[in-house]
Design a protein around this nucleic acid. Structure first.
Lengths: 104, 104
DNA sequence: CTCTATGCTACATAAAGGGTAGCAATATGC
DNA sequence: GCATATTGCTACCCTTTATGTAGCATAGAG
């Protein structure tokens, strides 16, 4: 089980929030977490849910997310780890907020 | 006061959460919001706080954030709009979570 | 042995990001 | 007035990241 990598783009401190910003600031990361919310799904199924993101990128992100202990591959496909579930719960809050924001 | 742009990378639906993911999924966006948390700051001051991010990029992001009604330029420098403050409150939650996550 | 679905990789092109220099405008000191 | 400093910001060029298409190797079903 890998620790959060200390190497972070644009920050030398290695503070957890910077690691997280670096992770979530990569395109598709949040979207991928989001699209797992209804349960585990296969690689190809996940691709479809993500507007046919390229498999190259999907694999890159999944690799990182697995190293970060947020996603894991089980028999049923890709799904959350307990940590991933927690993080996605926060994304759900962003969803709620975004609806209010868009209605401004 | 601009509405959230409907054109979103990687999603044709234009749902608010996708707009938000698109915005936050750009490098430095969350970091910039984060670094404003202690009050308004000048363009150059903001650059320094953001590990000397290039002015090109900072300006691009600030432009978008202003269009999105999250950040504004006042006498004291760049600072939050009320919406920006709300969003940053959510980022604060991510901060708290990231500390727990990093300690796993 | 074919047919299908799986996770995943190679490769070439397009888009986004990054670093340095410096401009125009405004305020400040002398 | 005139130099100095600070402001927000742009131009330019190069590197990194993302995207799109094709297809491989493996596993299971019929």
């Amino acid at each position: 089980m890998a620790k959060a990598k200390t190497r972070v783009r644009g920050s030398s401190t290695g503070r957890p929030i910077m690691v997280l910003f670096d992770l979530l600031g990569q395109r598709w990361t949040m979207r991928i977490l989001w699209e797992l919310r209804e349960g585990a799904v296969t690689f190809r199924g996940l691709r479809e849910r993500c507007d046919d993101v390229s498999p190259t990128l999907l694999n890159q992100r999944l690799k990182t997310l697995r190293e970060m202990d947020l996603v894991e591959l089980t028999e049923g496909g890709y799904g959350y780890t307990p940590w991933g579930k927690q993080l996605t719960a926060e994304l759900m809050r962003l969803h709620a907020w975004s609806e209010r924001w868009a209605a401004r």
